[in-house]
Nucleic acid binder design. Structure first.
Lengths: 200, 200
DNA sequence: TGAGCATACGGAACGACGCTCCGATTTTGC
DNA sequence: GCAAAATCGGAGCGTCGTTCCGTATGCTCA
C-alpha cells in the first residue's frame, strides 16, 4: 500500500529517484531565475537553467502558477504563521497589524514582479492569487478584527480589500528609486487608524 | 513650403485623404475595442474592427502606446487642466486635491486595464507612462504644494510618488466587486491629511 | 485628362512566448 | 534480466507584437 502523501511529496507512491531529484533542481533553478529575471521569466529559461526539458517542468508543475507557489510556499506560510504570534506578543492589536503588514510588504517588494503577477487578471495566475488569499486573508481578518474590537481602527475594512490594496501598492516597487512602496503602505494604514476624519 | 505641423496632424505636408480617414477610423475603432476588451486588446482585433491591415496601424501609431495615448489624450489633458481650476474654485487646497484625485481615479477605473498598462514595467508602455507623468505630475505638484503650504497635509510627499500610488491602487479595480479602488484611495489621502500620527 | 511618382495599404512572415504531445529513455518490481 | 510503467526532452501548435515589402491609390503637373 502506498504511504500517505505528505504534500511535499516526501513519500507518496515512491516517486522515481530522478523525478524527485528533478523537482528539487527545478525549484532551485526557478528560485534563482526569479531573483534575476522576475517571476514571469520565460519558462524556457527556467528549464535551461535547471538543465531539463520543457516537458519536465510542466509535469511537475502543471501551470506556471504552481511553480511560483512551490517556490514561495515556505515564505507565505511563515508570513501567515507570524500573524497570531505578533498578535500575542505585541502591546496592541494595531501594533501587531502594522508589523504584520510590514512583513507582507517586505516579502512582496523583494520578489521581483510577484506583486504584479498577483494582481494580474490573466487566468494564468488564478491559482497563485487563490493560494495567497487562502493563506493570508484569515490571518489578516484576525488582526483587523482585534484592532477593530479594540477601537483602534475605523470599522468596515475587509481583509481581502486591505491585502489587495497593499499588494497593489507594491507593484513595480523595485527598480524605481523614486517610489517607496513601504511609505505608501504606511500612509494607507495611517488613514485606516484614525477613527473618522469627519466625525470630530 | 509645407505648412506648420499642428501636432494633431491638422495640416503638415497635406497627408493623403485615405490616410487621414484611416487615422480617424483607427482611433474610433481602438476606443471602442478598448472599452470592451481593455487597453491591451490584440492589435489584430483593432485592425479588424477598423477594417484595415496591420501595417496601417503601425504606420500611424509606431507603437501600441502611441495609439493608447492618442485615444486618451483629450481626457488626460482635461484632467490636467482641471487641477488649477479646482485650486481656484475650492475653499481649501486640500479640497481641491481631493477632488482632483477623485477625477484621476474615475478616469483610470473606467478605462479597463489602463492602470495596469501604466504600471507595466514592460518597455512597450514607456511612452504611455511618460506622457501621463509629463502632463499630470506638474499639476499634482501644484496641488500638493498649495496644501502643504496651508499646513493641511504632512510635508515631504512627492507628486510622482502619490500619482504612482493612486495609479497602483486602481489596478484591476473593475471586474472585482469586492475591491473598491476609490475607497482605498480615500484612505490613502486620509493618511496624508493627518499631520503626523506620532507627533501628538 | 492621364502619366508618373510619392505615399499609403494589406497581410504574410518573424521571433518570442506559454503550453501540449509523443517517441525515446530510464527506473523499478518481479 | 525483462517488461511495464514512469519520466524525459524538445519539436510543434496557437497567440501575440512588430516588421517588411509588393501592390494599390491618391496627388501633381503637364
Amino acid at each position: 500500500m502506498p504511504e500517505v502523501d505528505e504534500q511535499a511529496g516526501r513519500t507518496s507512491r515512491r516517486k522515481r529517484a530522478d523525478a524527485r531529484r528533478n523537482e528539487q533542481t527545478l525549484l532551485d533553478a526557478a528560485a534563482s531565475v526569479f531573483v534575476t529575471s522576475g517571476v514571469d521569466a520565460p519558462v524556457r529559461d527556467i528549464a535551461a537553467a535547471a538543465g531539463v526539458g520543457m516537458g519536465t517542468i510542466y509535469r511537475h508543475f502543471p501551470t506556471r502558477a504552481d511553480l511560483v507557489i512551490a517556490v514561495y510556499r515556505h515564505q507565505v506560510d511563515a508570513c501567515a504563521d507570524a500573524g497570531p504570534a505578533l498578535l500575542a506578543s505585541s502591546s496592541t492589536p494595531h501594533a501587531a497589524l502594522t508589523q504584520w503588514i510590514d512583513l507582507f510588504v517586505d516579502f512582496l517588494v523583494t520578489k521581483h514582479g510577484l506583486a504584479a503577477a498577483l494582481q494580474s487578471d490573466s487566468a494564468r495566475f488564478e491559482t497563485l492569487h487563490a493560494y495567497f488569499l487562502d493563506r493570508l486573508v484569515p490571518v489578516c481578518e484576525g488582526l483587523l478584527g482585534a484592532a477593530a474590537a479594540a477601537g483602534e481602527i475605523r470599522p468596515g475594512m475587509g481583509a481581502y480589500e486591505l491585502l489587495r490594496a497593499v499588494g497593489n501598492l507594491c507593484v513595480g516597487a523595485d527598480g524605481d528609486t523614486h517610489y517607496d512602496a513601504r511609505r505608501m503602505v504606511r500612509l494607507l494604514i495611517a488613514g485606516l487608524l484614525q477613527p473618522s476624519p469627519a466625525s470630530q
